[in-house]
Amino acid sequence: MVLAGGEGRRLRPATLTVPKPLMPIDGIPILHIILTQLKNAGFTRVTLSLGYRAHMIRASFGGNRWSGLELDFSLEEEPLGTAGPLALLPPFEESVLVMNADLLTDVDFADLWSHHKKSRAAATIALSPQDIDVAHGVVELDEERRVTDFREKPRLSFLVSGGIYVLEPSLLRFLPPRGRHDMPTLLDHARAHGERVEGYVIEGDWRDIGTPEQLDLATTAFRTDRARYLGRRGVAELCADTGAFSRAVTG
């Protein structure tokens, strides 16, 4: 399931006319890149959770089959968050991959899936290592206000959620039948009830295209090495699909 219903407010004014999942990365809609990657990883059926300008996204695929994938379209009448759209699906009996539609990454989806299946976890979160350089000296105090540490302009390292998850059907019992619900809340409920939630660290590239600056960086990275993200076969297939994006932006 690809979550493609957001308004992309941080990308305005561009998203006033084109929904964020159709934002072009070097001329190719990001959602088309994602679906090509999923197909290359062995997926055959994808549900797109749509909301804002849903008709444009559907039009960009020209039907329920696209590049060998079977597509289902699920419409959010109101924003449902990152987990709420799961409640609109028919009950599923197998694992499901859920991801955001605004990501450029070279993560190996097949390896992520295999890792999850071997782990026997209820959920696996793809994680991206991120560093933040602090421009000032960082001081730590104890309870008596004595300085215990003083680091000049340190680099802090984190693992951030990559917006990509593999979930087991058992998690559905923690999901309200309706209304907005986000993935961190769902997974917190699962962990509180003893379910195992694991992390999968992305060793390659991961980029959120949520701002104009991030979109530009992603475009540069993709333009420099398309095969890194798509493989040679995927590059050829997407280059041949020149009409889809035109249909999307013209409505």
Rank of each mutant, 00 (worst) to 15 (best):
P29T: 00
S128G: 01
T82K: 02
E168A: 01
A83I: 03
Q37Y: 03
P79K: 08
F222L: 12
L171T: 04
K20F: 08
S157G: 14
Q130L: 15
E144R: 15
G137M: 14
G231F: 08
H55C: 08
P13I: 02
G27I: 01
I33G: 14
D225R: 15
R65H: 15
G62Q: 11
E77I: 03
V249D: 10
P177H: 13
H136Y: 11
K118G: 13
V107E: 00
G194L: 03
G210A: 07
G5R: 05
A121H: 00
L238T: 05
T82Y: 01
L22P: 08
A4T: 03
L35E: 09
C239I: 14
V46Q: 01
V2M: 09
R223M: 08
P169G: 11
E195C: 06
I125C: 02
R196A: 08
G8H: 04
E198M: 11
G163D: 06
G199D: 01
R207D: 10
T250H: 14
D216V: 10
L175D: 04
K117G: 09
P19K: 07
S246A: 11
G163E: 02
A83R: 03
Q37D: 06
L167N: 03
S49M: 11
S119Y: 00
L22V: 12
G137Y: 09
M23V: 12
L97P: 03
A240D: 11
T220L: 15
G137E: 15
R180V: 05
T15H: 02
S60E: 08
R45C: 09
E198Y: 01
P29F: 05
G162L: 00
T124N: 01
A59T: 15
R53P: 03
G6L: 13
L35F: 08
R178G: 07
V96Y: 02
F174T: 14
I125G: 00
R146Q: 14
V197S: 02
D26G: 10
R120C: 12
R12T: 02
D182P: 02
A54M: 05
P154D: 12
D102F: 07
T185A: 14
T220M: 14
H136L: 10
I209K: 05
R180N: 09
L22W: 12
I33C: 12
V235W: 07
